[in-house]
């Protein structure tokens, strides 16, 4: 009976991974560059699940062995192993959002220091394609908010606010993920927009505007003066990658 359960769980786990791969929600969890590892894992899980079928005929002498593996799974063990699949199916997939910010360091220090390697590639991107991370990296290279003044930006991110933001401003934010959502670091740019109060927290928006030198919490930073803020869907890649 145990091997039956193991086969079922391995298959289910493989199929679960496949479903997340196919509908793209895998990127809610890991950096794009590890995508292929998950594909391999899904194939491997199903193969290992199949392998139990072929072992069945050899199984009669297994209990003799020192008893290290082939251990029967207790119900608690079974439940635990199945829990990623169960939780994944019960709770609809969603990328980290404003709620996860409350537990992370959102001081400006961390906003601007999040993994900023050399930006050679970034500088050559067309301006309207630069994302929040690109602009922050660029700002760090000059450290002069005035240098970027007047640059037109088009940014996609979710709305984040806390008590430090005034009526007419919010932060358009993304998470930067090196490995998986466990290491997500929030970044963002402060947006000035008169109609800010109409936006819901955690709403994904596209912000079009220009950068202007400004100040936030006593630090000199580029701020976004928004011409328009439009609600959008969660992008296919909710996180930004530092490398």
């Amino acid at each position: 009976m145990t091997t039956g359960w193991k086969t079922i769980i391995l298959m289910a786990m493989g199929l679960f991974l496949f479903s997340r791969i196919l509908n793209g929600t895998l990127l809610f969890y890991i950096n794009e560059r590890f995508f292929w590892l998950s594909v391999l894992a899904a194939v491997g899980l199903i193969l290992v699940g199949v392998s139990y079928r072929y072992r069945a005929d050899h199984d009669h002498h297994e209990p003799d062995h020192a008893g290290y593996s082939h251990g029967r799974l207790s119900w608690a063990g079974l439940l635990l192993i199945a829990s990623p699949i169960v939780l994944g199916l019960v709770i609809p997939p969603k990328p980290l959002g404003a709620a996860a910010m409350t537990n992370r360091d959102i001081s400006l220090e961390s906003l601007t220091s999040a993994a900023a390697p050399e930006g050679g590639i970034i500088l050559s991107k067309p301006k309207t394609e630069k994302n929040i991370l690109d602009w922050i990296v660029e700002f760090r290279q000059t450290s002069d908010p005035a240098a970027l003044a007047g640059e037109e930006v088009k940014l996609v991110g979710f709305v984040y606010r806390d008590e430090r933001f005034g009526e007419d401003s919010f932060m358009v934010s993304r998470f930067v993920v090196s490995c998986c959502a466990a290491d997500a670091a929030p970044i963002g740019l402060v947006v000035h927009w008169p109609d800010s109060p109409t936006l819901a927290d955690d709403q994904w928006v596209e912000v079009v505007g220009v950068l202007e030198p400004g100040e936030f919490e006593g630090e000199q930073l580029p701020l976004v003066k928004a011409a328009s803020v439009t609600p959008t869907d969660v992008p296919n890649q909710p996180y930004l990658y530092p490398f």
Partner: peptide, 13 residues
Amino acid sequence: VTIFLSIFIEAVP
């Protein structure tokens, strides 16, 4: 759940 699954999915391969 998102963080739990992300660690699991990253580690499982």
